[in-house]
């Protein structure tokens, strides 16, 4: 006769096998339905030709990749600016004393305005507006001012993320710092911020992924980055496949980054529980 634990193991194995079988079957069913049904649509041949044209994908892909380096460059040099500005705004919002009221007010206004206006609108307003002042080269480049618009918007979001981190550090930590004679500044710098910033890493990873995609919005005001490049190909070839190519390139970056953010979040949950 089998022992109880052996029976239990056998039962759990059976349950697991059953689960895997059902999942596989249902996935296959949905996939085959898509493969069979979609081509039945009356316009499928046309769509296939203009969106999933293999030859065009291969021929335009290298130039898309090359244009993507500009996206990466914009992304990379706006990052530190966003981090610093976001931190400063978060610190402004954290001011509690009456003397610092203007700073706090500024922080609130800043985050309200830049989170309240659609990114694309900020990009238009700053990217077209500031060069309109007739500044000398290179200060009339929409490339610079468009990036600034991204920095302003994203630092507002990042500031809120950091502020939530600051507020998540328990009051008793500040009390401990103050009781030792540390100044407000030192308490913030050595005690509150290191803990706060660590806690908001996963949330900020998500901001990073979003920023990486939103760089493409600059295509509307000039720089020939990937989306703009895809648009050029589209006009020349009268085919939408380059857009699909661009999407593939974005996904190649954003999917691993998103998975990594999820991993960090899960790790943090494990550590705190």
């Amino acid at each position: 006769m089998k022992s109880r634990s052996a029976t239990r193991v056998a039962f759990e194995k059976k349950q697991k096998r059953k689960g895997v079988a059902i999942a596989t079957l249902s996935t296959l069913l949905v996939l085959s339905a898509l493969v069979v049904l979609v081509p039945q649509a009356p316009g499928w041949t046309k769509v296939k030709n203009s969106f999933f044209n293999g030859d065009i994908l291969v021929s335009t892909f290298p130039s898309l990749l090359k244009a993507f380096t500009l996206d990466i460059a914009i992304f990379l040099w706006s990052l530190p600016a966003i981090a610093i500005l976001g931190l400063l705004i978060a610190l402004c919002r954290d001011q509690k004393s009456a003397v610092m009221f203007p700073l706090r007010m500024f922080g609130i206004l800043y985050t309200d305005i830049f989170r309240g206006v659609p990114v694309i609108l900020t990009i238009f307003l700053i990217g077209f507006g500031v060069p309109g002042l007739g500044l000398p080269r290179p200060w009339n480049s929409p490339y610079i001012w468009g990036t600034l618009a991204l920095v302003l918007t994203y630092s507002a979001y990042v500031a809120e993320v950091i502020r939530s981190g600051i507020e998540s550090v328990h009051e008793s930590q500040r009390a401990a710092g103050h009781s030792l004679g540390l100044s407000h500044g030192d308490t913030m710098r050595y005690i509150v911020l290191p803990q706060a910033l660590r806690r908001v890493v996963p949330a900020n990873m998500n901001m990073l992924v979003a920023l990486q995609k939103d760089v493409a919005l600059l295509s509307f005001i000039g720089p020939v980055e990937i989306l703009r490049q895809a648009g050029v190909h589209k006009s020349l070839l009268a085919n939408f496949t380059p857009y699909v190519g661009a999407a593939i390139i974005f996904l190649a970056i954003t999917i691993p980054a998103t998975r990594y953010a999820d991993y960090l979040l899960a790790k943090q949950h494990r550590e705190r529980s």
Partner: peptide, 25 residues
Amino acid sequence: LVFQSFNLFPHMSALENVTLAPRRV
């Protein structure tokens, strides 16, 4: 002042907890 809930700084070693204030203040 010593607190009921210790209030050590969790991101610092025991030594860093102890030396922070003498160093900064």
